[in-house]
């Protein structure tokens, strides 16, 4: 028998509040091209991205600590497949332990030729030193996409 289908699209708009901690973090990125973490008063660990409380001790974090701009790659992937509503491939992203931080921050890796997957993966292997780069001041919006990582 003939089986029918119906196409539906969900387009839902949200305006998310970022809260005090993330707002301060993104203002520093936008205005000063600096990345900060929050120190856990209990353990001294510097959490990046910054959080109002430590998910290990559940205590409020106590101070802002500038981290980076240098760091090392903790993990990565390189995407070659297009997905709807995600960027055009190829692109590389992953997590970087910035100098002075204890947890890793997500971001794109730019400036690496991704044409050959194996060769690109070798360049991005765990432990590789990178440096944080920022978009020009007039382009920065206070967002995760204001910065990215390049090989040091």
């Amino acid at each position: 028998m003939e089986l029918l289908k119906r196409q539906e699209d969900w387009k839902i708009t949200y305006t998310h509040a970022l809260g005090e901690v993330a707002s301060w973090f993104f203002v520093q990125i936008r205005d000063n091209a600096k990345i900060f973490g929050r120190r856990c008063g209990d353990t001294g660990r510097v959490l990046v991205p910054p959080r109002a409380f430590s998910d290990q001790t559940l205590e409020p974090t106590t101070e802002w600590v500038e981290v980076g701009p240098g760091g090392k790659i903790e993990t990565f992937t390189i995407v070659y497949e297009p997905f709807n509503n995600l960027p055009e491939p190829p692109y590389a992203f992953g997590y970087v332990l910035l100098d002075g931080a204890d947890t890793a921050l997500g971001g794109y890796f730019r400036g690496v030729d991704l044409a050959d997957p194996a060769a690109a993966a070798e360049k991005l292997k765990i432990g590789t030193r990178v440096v944080t780069k920022f978009a020009d001041k007039d382009k920065r919006k206070g967002d995760m996409l204001d910065f990215w990582f390049e090989l040091a």
Binding site: Y14, H16, L18, G19, A22, P49, E74, T75, F76, T77, V79, F83, L86, P87, Y91, F93, G94, Y95, G106, G107, Y108, I126, D143, M144, L145
Partner: peptide, 21 residues
Amino acid sequence: PQYERPLPLGTITMLAMSGIR
């Protein structure tokens, strides 16, 4: 929506990064 949504994370990329480690 604060920190990680702007990145192109999905379950494939999340577990690819586990595989790398």
